[in-house]
Write a protein that binds this DNA or RNA. Structure first.
Length: 298
DNA sequence: ACGGACTCCTGGATGC
DNA sequence: TGCATCCAGGAGTCCG
């Protein structure tokens, strides 16, 4: 579900709502929502209760809230661990009042005390492909800037990260035999791109999803990257893509970018560029949408 | 060692 | 109305 723009909307919401707050109680309603936590549910709870939340960070589709170092660790006051979240296909992080009715598919509930009073941070996830964890913060492989959760070290920087390496991206794209879309979805090459934005960027770049990445010119790869950045920025401005209530911000509100999609999910509709009917094709157990005229394999 | 197939889940839409 | 089938914003793991 959520790709970079949606996760970024959630990150911004969390940073605004919870930074500086203290977790007073944690309730794990479904252990399957802790798939990424290396430890028991009890361990998860005890690592969080009493901890202070710092401003949320993100890389690609991974989101985390660093925890203020515990007293006694002032020698190195950088955060040592973080509450890590991946929303999977259907995960949500909601900021709710204590009296709000229980949400369907509520998996984990955290009671939080902030300057403005008490509230709840709720992890909701229909399909349980997402999860929360407490993870250790470590130096990133490129050793630059802030530390990141140990489970995120294999994830490439995303294209809205100022330290994103365009040359490395181009090099890696051009050295794989895979189709261009499969490469674009590889979070170790570029993070944050999922099925929707891959199709949108490929449509903008007039590329066929199965075009072997190594056969695409460096010039075209650069153009594709710019389209990814543009479509991310435009979606972010509209609060992300919501097809239904599965993707929402921390206040439970939908984004509007689904109205601006030009290829994804538009089977049979006219290509906004040439009028040809958009085609839906099977791709890696899901679907790809493309214009059969604008996006041909070469 | 790369890359495709499989797997983890729930629920809404569609078809017979 | 009921039941089966298909489909969905992801990614870790396994196997050839």
């Amino acid at each position: 579900m959520p790709e970079l723009p949606e996760v970024e909307v959630v990150r911004q919401g969390l940073a605004a709502a919870v930074a500086g707050s203290t977790i007073s109680a944690v309730e794990v309603l479904d252990e399957r929502a802790l798939k990424r936590h290396r430890g028991t549910p009890l361990d998860f709870v005890s690592r969080l209760e009493g901890r202070v939340l710092l401003p949320a960070s993100r890389r690609g589709k991974f989101l985390w809230v660093p925890l203020e170092p515990l007293a006694g660790f002032e020698a190195d006051s950088r955060p040592q661990d973080a509450l890590l979240a991946h929303l999977g296909m259907s995960g949500q992080m909601l900021v709710r009042t204590l009296s709000a009715p229980e949400d369907k598919q509520l998996r984990i509930r955290m009671r939080v005390e902030g300057p403005a009073g008490e509230y709840e941070l709720r992890f909701i996830d229909q399909r349980l492909f997402g999860s929360l964890a407490v993870d250790e913060l470590v130096a990133p492989v490129d050793a630059a800037t802030e530390r990141i959760p140990s489970q995120v070290t294999h994830i490439a920087r995303d294209p809205i990260d100022p330290l994103f390496d365009r040359k490395l991206f181009s090099l890696r794209m051009r050295s794989t035999k895979r189709g261009i879309k499969a490469a674009l979805l590889d979070q170790a090459i570029i993070s944050g791109v999922g099925n929707i934005y891959a199709d949108e960027a490929l449509w903008r770049a007039r590329l066929h999803w199965a075009q072997p990445a190594a056969t695409v010119s460096a010039r075209k790869i650069t153009e594709l990257l710019e389209h990814v950045q543009d479509v991310f920025a435009q979606s972010l401005e509209e609060g992300g893509t919501s097809f239904d209530s599965l993707y929402v911000n921390v206040n439970g509100e939908s984004g509007y970018f689904s109205r601006s999609l030009q290829a994804y999910g538009r089977e049979g509709e006219a290509c906004p560029r040439c009028g040809t009917a958009i085609k839906r094709e099977p791709f890696a157990n899901r679907s790809s949408y493309r214009c059969p005229r604008c996006q041909r394999k070469r």
